[in-house]
């Protein structure tokens, strides 16, 4: 379970949000709302430990993620604006190296299967720099199919995806929730995430202060 207490993040001079508290339990999805610049990305980066909040605490199963550090890193997968895909490596290499470093190595066969499932059949062994924007995105998202991390932190995962891929990703997310996983995501697109528990969390508004 992820607990957030009295979180505050300051960027430059501006307090993005303060006194933010919420919890995310197993089988739950939080859909984060907010206008541009309200600190959605900052919050997501703080939650996976990339960024140190100015005040407040983030607890994973009751322990601070700052103390857990690597242990927590094994439990979370983050897919941000930049996919973290190396253009010089092929899709399968990207996926296998990521899985290896995530501590859950996969066989080449499993990698091919995941890539095929996400709709990259025939593109598995091309350098990812020749792929389209949406295909690169799919390579990044293929990690969701092979990971064992219970907490998914997804920053605008539907961007650049076509209709089929959006539907497919929704399915993947729904299955994860059904498996008692946890998902935190931001998106501007209307997406249908009905199965399981969906909660809305709005940034900005009364928390907003210049």
């Amino acid at each position: 379970m992820l607990e957030v207490h009295q979180l505050q993040c300051v960027r430059g001079d501006r307090s993005l949000f303060s006194n933010l508290s919420f919890t995310l339990s197993q089988g739950e999805l939080i859909h984060l709302h907010g206008h541009n610049g309200s600190g959605k990305t900052t919050l997501l980066r703080a939650l996976c430990g990339l960024l140190e909040p100015t005040a407040g605490s983030i607890l994973w199963n009751g322990e601070s993620i700052r103390l857990l550090r690597e242990e927590f890193a094994a439990e979370v997968i983050y897919i941000g604006h930049k996919g973290g895909i190396k253009g010089g490596l092929t899709a399968i290499e990207n996926l296998q190296i990521a899985a290896q470093l995530d501590g859950s190595p996969i066989t080449t066969a499993a990698g091919w299967r995941a890539l095929e499932e996400i709709g990259l059949y025939g593109f598995e062994d091309l350098p990812t720099k020749v792929l389209s924007q949406g295909q690169k995105r799919r390579v990044a998202l293929a990690r969701l199919l092979v990971t064992r991390a219970p907490l998914w932190v997804l920053d605008e995962p539907f961007v650049a995806l076509d209709k089929d891929a959006v539907a497919q990703l929704q399915g993947v997310i729904q299955n994860h929730i059904a498996d008692n996983g946890m998902v935190l995501l931001t998106t501007h697109q209307e997406v249908n995430l009905t199965r399981g528990e969906v909660r809305q969390l709005a940034l900005g508004g009364e928390n907003h202060r210049d």
Partner: peptide, 17 residues
């Protein structure tokens, strides 16, 4: 280059030291 394409933050998030 790792910083530019986001793979550096992925390295930071791996459970490896």
């Amino acid at each position: 280059s790792d910083f530019d394409d986001g793979s550096l933050e992925q390295l930071l998030l791996t459970p490896q030291p």
